[in-house]
Amino acid sequence: MTTENNNLEREEAVVVALKATFPDLTARVKRIRRVEASVSKALTPSVLVHAKNVLGYKALSHISCVDWIEDEHFELVYILWNPDEKIQLLIKTLISRENATMENIDTIWRQANTYQREMREMFGIEFPGFVGAKEFLLEDWDDMPPMRRDFDTKEFVKEAFFLRPGREDAKDVRDTIAKRSKEEIPEFAKKYSREK
């Protein structure tokens, strides 16, 4: 969207530098100022340390997790920023959904502590050796980690909450008001009614 030339030499140099040190890694230029690399789980901490200490990706912008339940893995995305080169590097790795574990990196970036606490709570990913308060956003949670795709939010709401006594019929406000006031719902509004 910005009016810059499409010279991607700097981004391509990052891909070359990464591949020179880690031949097994796949990397590509996504667009100007965005490079992404896919790494195996075992190699990820080494790539992160190398990116930070050698390639100048000093800032950790973000750590994200995506649940690919159909493929039975989580995708962790470490998003780094190089303040000198002005390039964002996305390092992606796949970990198994079952007994999901990942290397603790809060010794590399202190703020990774918060991200890991959230991932442990929301996705159930364990980080061996990681010290961080167990509860982050949820309190006394003993259900499935709620950001997992197989967590049924509707079922949870049914179990956790109840209808106010005397208001069990008030699931559809429009219909309830019509019944109680004995007024007919206008024809044009009937299509929005939940009771069809």
Partner: peptide
């Protein structure tokens, strides 16, 4: 930078960093 400071606190530390300049959008 390493601690993840961004925005005005980072610029107040003498580090010129602003997404509008570094990664221009719009």
């Amino acid at each position: 930078i390493e601690w993840g400071v961004v925005g005005a606190p980072l610029r107040a530390a003498g580090i010129a960093s602003d997404v509008r300049k570094d990664d221009p959008y719009e």
